[in-house]
């Protein structure tokens, strides 16, 4: 932004529209894989309405938190964050609705429940995309820098949760997760837990990706980092998987051990998503 202290009203509105445009782009990038998955449309129609409500109820605080740290616009107070989260949600809903209509997947002859359900489910990755697009591809300025520096431990956890949700959201509704976990023996499952943990830690601290966390950010040793970030991140990923699978009604006929195996299976993409989210955001 130019040094002008008080931009004209017209500039303010134009800036906002450009921001919305970027958010729409992000929403499309994040939601297209899910929009073109058959299980998702049918889920929208069949899902218990309370679970759908729980999905949205969980999504909004996540958007507020993400907006706090990466931002749809540079934000300074919680009221701004809530407003931005709602704008992102609106962008997500409208983008989903438009793309679903373009594909001919929602039509007037369908029941209201079916249309509504499909749009609400798709709005989850779409609004995540809307928030992230602005944070990553928007104009950087001083206030962004400041925010990035303020993003502490809790923000890292939030990013990990968002990354886990994003990567496993497109996989969770598919039948394949069930098939894979049904074929795994307990030994496979244990190995997968250990590999997930190792992958998370390596991605963030070892493999030297751009944006890698310094090995010793706070004078903390390996075990401290491992316990506070990697283990917590993996536990968070498992919780995300549990929440998503419960929402999608995938535990309904499963025994405890089968359900846990399902979480661990889905936990692998979730863990990788969580690790990369820490690098990207």
């Amino acid at each position: 932004m130019a040094p002008a202290q008080t931009p004209s009203r017209r500039d303010v509105e134009l800036d906002f529209l450009a921001g919305v445009g970027r958010a729409v782009g992000g929403a499309a990038v994040f939601s297209l894989p899910v929009l073109m998955t058959m299980e998702m449309w049918s889920l929208g129609a069949s899902l218990d309405r309370w679970r759908l409500l729980a999905l949205v109820a969980g999504l909004i605080p996540l958007l507020v938190g993400l907006s706090r740290f990466i931002g749809f616009e540079e934000t300074t107070c919680w009221r701004d964050d809530i407003r931005d989260a709602l704008v992102a949600f609106a962008v997500g809903v409208v983008t989903s609705a438009v793309i679903l209509s373009l594909f001919g997947l929602i039509e007037p002859r369908m029941s209201f429940d079916e249309i509504m359900g499909a749009i609400v489910i798709e709005s989850v990755p779409a609004s995540l995309g809307a928030v992230v697009a602005q944070g990553q591809f928007g104009k950087a300025d001083e206030s962004d820098e400041r925010h990035a520096r303020e993003a502490g431990y809790w923000a890292e956890l939030l990013f990990m949760a968002a990354g886990a949700i994003y990567l496993c959201f497109s996989v969770a509704p598919t039948e394949e997760v069930d098939l894979i976990s049904a074929e795994m023996t307990p030994f496979h499952a244990i190995a997968l837990v250990l590999v997930s943990l190792a992958a998370m830690h390596s991605v963030v601290y070892v493999l030297q990706y751009a944006g890698q966390e310094p090995v010793d950010p706070e004078g903390a040793g390996f075990w401290s980092l491992f316990a506070r970030y990697t283990v917590v991140g993996y536990a968070l990923s498992l919780l995300v998987c549990f929440a998503l699978m419960w929402t999608f009604g995938r535990f309904d006929d499963l025994g405890v051990e089968a359900a846990l195996r399902l979480c661990v299976t889905l936990g692998f993409p979730a863990a990788v998503g969580a690790a990369f989210a820490r690098l990207i955001v």
Binding site: V193, L197, A227, R228, V231, V232, G233, Y234, A235, L236, L238, L239
Partner: peptide, 8 residues
């Protein structure tokens, strides 16, 4: 961290 470790 303790909670996470407990879950894992």
């Amino acid at each position: 961290a303790g909670l996470g470790a407990a879950i894992v």
